[in-house]
Design a protein around this nucleic acid. Structure first.
Lengths: 209, 209, 209, 209
DNA sequence: TATGAATGAGAGTTCATTCAT
DNA sequence: AATGAATGAACTCTCATTCAT
């Protein structure tokens, strides 16, 4: 049992090591220009080994997203459980959670949004796809829950809370991708934090009663 | 003279024919899964012919974006020249222009946002890249101009107009991509128009004085 | 009749114009890197037109050699008809003829030696190949004739004259190609004339009785 | 340790196996008509495998030349170290070395001279090109050394020894290519050995004091 | 479990040649 | 006679994946 456990842990650690390497390479070169060998080299493993831990390249890519969604979900559940916060404070907490997700690992986040908006989605294994769907669904519900709370307390305008969640999520991803894109196209080093701050400020003002 | 003209027109038509085919295939399979032969088959031409009209696959892909940006720019200039509109009406016009862009050709728009947020950008010919930069720059300025107008008229809160333009652009792209992504992941057929409508409503409310 | 003749002459001129262009391009880029379009552009004609004058690319390439062989043949026949020269003087004349051939058009000459030593030979039309064979045969005989003359006059050692002709021809081509190759590899600007001079001097000394 | 060594050896063997196959195919069809797939098939490997051992087609082609130059260099160094030979005997040894090089592998030798006199040179990797330059430079110096020796001993006429080396090298390559070419054009099966013999005889006579 | 050599399908692209005008 | 747009076969090279060790 102890041995089994240790093996389990070691396996998990190996998986993690690969994901860290993958994240770095994907972020630097993008999905298509990244080769399995690049990742293997970065992880100091052989290409074949990667296939012991991930079904294929797509799966490895998508697995990165799972970790960040899990992190976000924890933050959201934490917000939900904070009974003392008023609606506005919850919104502030959401903003911080989102920025926290970005700071937690910008590269992974960008990866995830790329994944979200890309053809890769179509090639995932059904199982992984369903895990992602499941998690992102839960996250959306977590966000919606915050709006629900504000609406119930007559602090926010009466809109469908899930619709609001989708919009704020789209806003978040749009900003992250657009800022990143400007960095590539224009070599501008725009300040994401500032942009997010402003966007949320406007959004919050926009939904207040 | 007449001959020259006719040839010019035919050449343009051929280019168009290829772009239409490309758009369809790219939208269906994504950039990387789309092969030149796919497009050629769709356009009922031979693969070699495509290279008479486009330097390579990247260029063809990016060319699609140019057309839609041009369309948007025209709409924006039109809004600017409408002297009788008050700030709120201009914002409404912007919303309609954006939705118009989507309706003009949803597939191309999605293509463009994919391009914007992807590695493909890094591989474009400098010339084409600069054309895109140039056009999108002008579009952003066009949007900023609307906010400028509202700020000057004390209708909008006093924020940097270009920052606002970036945010609304990010919001727009985020929504389009996110809705599209939900269509793929969840087979949901979400209503983009409704989402845009709500998002703009909130945003407008958020920047009003 | 006059018309027919003029047409004939114009056709010949066009052929010539193409060959001149081809020579320039082939010399600059080598056979394989040269495209038919390159040549057409240089000749200020369209690709299709070239095929009215030459069966294909190989033929065009080989045709260049014919002209230079013809030139050499004339020089050789001239030497043969010079009854007043002694064997040594004839050898000197041969040397000058060869250098003359080089000067007549170095590019074509190099082209021809490349052709001689290359795979292209295998792809020529039988007709063109036989023309080349025929002409080069005659040239070799012309050279052999000079040696024959020297042997008969007891000025040269008694070797098979055709064998000698082959050797001097190989020496000539070897030097031209080798000097050219050094120019490419080492960026050296070796003096072909000097090398030829020395080589012939040694050779002549080597066959004297 | 033993494992490492064995792997090294096997890798070398694989490389060799590919080179043998390449040589055969190149010789039969020439550089341009030879496809990577041809070579792979001949080597009983897959096309991809070739790229594990050679950077590209050009590199594979050029690598063939390296082996023969190395062989020649060894022979030349051997001649140099033979202190008992007089100048004439050294020349005889050079002749034999050259013929030995031909016999060592006629196909490779012809390949190398083709390479030398062709556009392919322009496309080699700088590294490989410099290896070839280096080796051929050393070979030329080795040959020049023999002439030097003869000149010092007053056996040969006083010419620049490197110039003589270039000439004999050009003569050698010229003969090999010309004989090969006659084999292709005329289906003659000329005797290279005889031609070389005669050529060297004349050359030697030509440089003797 | 880990390796990494080998695979081989498949991609983008080129260009000699054709043929309707 | 001249054009040049269109063809499409053929090329080199890449790389995700497998499997014997």
């Amino acid at each position: 049992m102890g041995i089994q456990e240790r093996k389990e842990r070691e396996k998990e650690r190996r998986r993690h090591q690969i994901m860290v390497a993958a994240k770095r390479v994907f972020s630097g070169k993008g999905f298509n220009k990244t080769t399995i060998e690049d990742i293997a080299r970065e992880a100091e493993l052989s290409p074949g080994t990667l296939y012991l831990y991930f079904k294929n390249k797509d799966d490895l890519y998508a697995s990165l997203s799972l970790s960040i969604l899990q992190y976000l979900l924890i933050r959201l559940e934490h917000i939900k459980s904070e009974k003392k916060l008023n609606p506005e404070q919850k919104l502030q907490a959401l903003k911080e959670a989102m920025y926290g997700v970005y700071e937690f690992d910008p590269l992974i986040l960008i990866n995830m949004f790329h994944l979200q908006s890309s053809e890769t989605l179509k090639n995932l294994s059904p199982q992984l796809l369903s895990e992602i769907k499941n998690l992102s669904q839960k996250c959306l519900e977590g966000i919606a829950n915050i709006f629900e709370y504000g609406i119930k307390h007559k602090a926010f305008i009466n809109k469908n809370s899930l619709a609001l969640a989708n919009i704020i999520w789209a806003l978040f991803s749009g900003i992250v991708l657009w800022i990143e894109s400007k960095r590539i196209i224009h070599n501008e080093n725009n300040d994401l934090k500032q942009a997010l701050e402003t966007a949320f400020e406007i959004f919050f003002k926009g939904i207040q009663k």
